[in-house]
Design a protein around this nucleic acid. Structure first.
Length: 442
RNA sequence: GUGGCUGUAGCGCAGCGGUCUAGCGCACCGGGUUGUGGCCCCGGGGGCGGCGGUUCGAAUCCGCCCAGUCACACCA
């Protein structure tokens, strides 16, 4: 009788969410959605799977190699989305006439990349995008930064830094340096400054044969990062001489002023000239969110302005700006900080144990009456295990109270932390529990 | 895609050529004790990633495969 056991396992880069972590994820999503809505964004959704040609769009890029692509049963060439921005471009091009412009929409969903997984990197991860489409004015850029900061602050997980730059500034700078087709490797080197240091950047640039004088110039801009945004602006302004770069710098200054006006903290939203970002569709402002306490998991969000993205799908022009918060990344950050231990609940948990099997109806009524307060999560013990086992269960779940009916009209309330126990009439439970818990219904 | 490291119970580990009928902690199951749980006591199930090779003898050495993991490239 040796039954074949199928080994339980998940695909490389795909992962389960256990109950304790699930509570944290729920809190993140709740805060994010509330924040997005409070900025006047509406929820939208696009499918996980699209025609491959939609997602590959411009073709050839690095993204194509990372895409999960296959044929469906009807022989269509399809793929799983690798971000939420490209599908949004398709969405806007397809429904443009029915949308009120400028469109403010947020989209929460899983994206897929056939990357090699490592710390904080998965092949399936949850992103929360917010975008403003149909507006070129930089006040939209500022809204996106403000919304990101607001969401992360409200989550209250620790310190974040939103590092902002402007591609126009960078392009203006590099165009004046006669780099030709070496711009891309130069951008990459720039982006790595914090990881490999100035010497590392110099070494990389030497590999693509950039003049020493030019390297020095680039490093000077990077080194210009000051203690305050003003200091950074002043330092970069001294080094920049092209009209485009100056315009980009001015634009960025306006954006950051607006963010501060909207309640943003200039110590959190920082001008950082090393931020360039890899995705090639960005045309203006770009930013990246770092979680200060867990830098090793990488950035927990990012975004920027993309003014040409819908051009692939329509002749109408829909400039856009948007960004994402990476929930999966945040989860690994909390995990690596050892913060995800017991399920942290929004509301205290109450376990109603099954006192005696004859009274299941009374147990159910009791549970319902406590749920109605809206102040507790109530777990009615299913089944009729030994009472000791039920207590152990309640303890393991981190319950605050255990309720056990002594008889149909009397219930004993036990506070697990202190061990105190009292017997009261069932009608009084809904009033007593909030008092014991120190919470009020308001 | 490139490179390093690792694969022993559900999880975390010890064992590194014979003393291993492979052990420890946690978890799980049964029971005892107990103030309706946390502690303690007794008992129980379950494992050397796979295939070859070296050897009198392999969890232990070698090779290949598979898997995991970390780093790079890129990125949330």
């Amino acid at each position: 009788m040796d039954r074949q056991i199928i080994q339980p396992r998940t695909l490389k880069g795909f992962t389960d969410v256990l109950p304790a972590a699930g509570q944290y994820r729920r809190r993140m999503l709740r805060v994010i959605e509330e924040t997005f809505c409070s900025f006047g964004f509406d929820p939208i959704q696009t499918p996980n799977v699209e025609y491959a040609e939609i997602l590959k769009g411009k073709g050839g890029g690095d993204n194509d190699k990372q895409m999960f692509e296959f044929r469906d049963a009807g022989g269509r060439d399809v793929a799983l989305r690798f971000d939420l921005t490209v599908p949004l471009a398709r969405f806007v091009a397809q429904h443009g006439s029915r949308l009120t412009m400028p469109l403010r929409a947020y989209n929460i969903g899983y994206v897929f990349r056939g990357d090699r997984p490592q710390k904080g990197r998965y092949r399936e991860f949850l992103q929360c995008d917010a975008d403003i489409i149909g507006e070129t004015d930089v006040s939209a850029d500022a809204e996106i930064l403000a919304i990101a900061q607001a969401a992360l602050t409200r989550m209250d997980f620790g310190r974040f830094v939103v590092r902002v730059n402007n591609r126009r500034m960078v392009n203006g700078l590099l165009n004046g340096l006669d780099l030709g087709d070496r711009i891309t490797p130069v951008l990459r080197a720039l982006d790595k400054i914090d990881k490999i240091g100035p010497a590392g950047v110099t070494a990389e640039l030497a590999q693509v044969e950039v003049d020493a004088a030019v390297v020095e110039r680039i490093l000077a801009v990077l080194a210009a990062r000051g203690e305050t945004n003003e200091a950074t602006f002043a330092a970069v302004a001294d080094l920049v001489d092209s009209a485009e770069a100056e315009a980009g710098l001015e634009e960025l200054r306006t954006i950051l002023d607006l963010v501060v006006a909207a309640g943003g903290d200039p110590d959190v939203v920082r001008f950082d000239p090393s931020i360039v970002r890899g995705l090639d569709y960005y045309t203006g402002m770009v930013y990246e969110i770092g979680f200060v306490e867990a830098p090793e998991v990488g950035s927990v969000g990012g975004g920027g302005r993309y003014d040409n993205l819908t051009g692939l799908y329509t002749r109408s022009r829909f400039p856009g700006v948007g960004g994402t918060i990476g929930v999966t990344r945040l989860m690994s950050a909390l995990e690596s900080l050892g913060r995800i231990r017991d399920a942290e609940r929004q509301r205290p948990l109450v376990v109603v144990t099954r006192g005696n099997q004859e009274d299941q109806i009374a147990d159910a009524r009791l549970a319902a009456s406590v749920r109605e307060t809206g102040l507790f999560d109530v777990d009615l013990y299913p089944g009729a295990a030994r009472h000791a086992a039920q207590m152990k269960y309640a303890d393991g779940r981190g319950a605050m109270f255990v309720l056990t009916l002594d008889d149909p009209t009397t219930v004993s309330v036990k506070e697990l932390r202190s061990g105190d126990r009292t017997s009261i009439a069932v009608e009084q439970v809904a009033d007593l529990l909030p008092k014991l818990a120190g919470i009020s219904r308001s």
